[in-house]
Amino acid sequence: MDAAVALLLAQDGVTNGAIYALLSLALVLVFAVTRVIYIPQGEFVAYGALSMAAVNAGLLPPTMWLVVTLGLAVAIVDSVAAIREGAKARLPLIIIKNAVLPILAVIVVRYLPLKDLAYPVQVLIALGFVVPLGPQIYRLAFQPVAEASVLLLLIVAVAVHFVMVGMGLYFFGAEGGRIPPFTEGGVTLGPAYVQYQTIWIVGIAALLIAGLALFFEHSIYGKALRATAINRTGARLMGISADLAGKLCFTLSALVGAFSGILIAPITTIYYDTGFLIGLKGFVGAIIGGLASYPLAAAGAVLVGLLESYSSFYASAYKEVIVFTLIIPVLLYQSLTTKHIDDEEDH
């Protein structure tokens, strides 16, 4: 293997690694705040990419009725809870936020000339009908069992994953989708031809990671999330709502997932079930970071991308085996070095 080939493979690995890094950060965030091992994270990649493909082709976002339906369900559940608590004053806001807003959005989108809109506007519309699924799923599937064990939350996550894959097939069909790149063409850097989209991916991923770091360090919501991650009970005693923290981190993870999908859909075809494997590789990255450290998770995810790229050159038939085998020494190392902390100490 000469330097040119090594460089090409590295470029390929870093591109995919950047996506895995974004997902691994979202996974760490969700796990730290809610203790949910968020298997459906990858589904948002597919939903984001395929919704964008639909909007770009001038079709209505396929998931819009799902957003409306789940919105109505959330409105009902929240209203019942509010009435039980005797807080009827909250009802109008609950109904407007969860039920009226999605319906209005659907009506607006129906009359927009989707195909002729500017690319960034199309991205916003696609995200607008995928990202709300994150908090909606949290409210309906996870919030009622928020205090349950990690294992139970994992099982709920697996169930949500299967439901989302199945609905993905229904919404988007079995044939995949692809979208035009943010900027056509590319540039020759030394021996390698680099597509502009690749630069977009790595650049935006870096920006998003920096943005998340700023958010956690400096914003009040970010600090609330961190506080919840460090100590749920303590945070609650300080007046931080665990439900709000959960919804917020699910929104963030849905946004990161869906946007990752839109980033890679121009360089590869995304299918309704592509997300799962991408999410799993992000998960391997997150495991390397012990599901706790953001920088380690991101570094681990890039390592996964590189390993994948080089093993696809040397032993393509065993690529996945090599990537996922990476977990074993990492887990072994972690279980030997870390002191076991009981997750269930909250109870």
């Binding site: 995919n16 079930d273 991408i278 790229s309 093993s311 696809s312 050159f313 038939a317 996945e320």
Partner: peptide
């Protein structure tokens, strides 16, 4: 070899 859901086949 590659997988149906692979996002890249550059190496191969």
């Amino acid at each position: 070899r590659f997988q149906r859901t692979d996002t890249s086949v550059t190496g191969q």
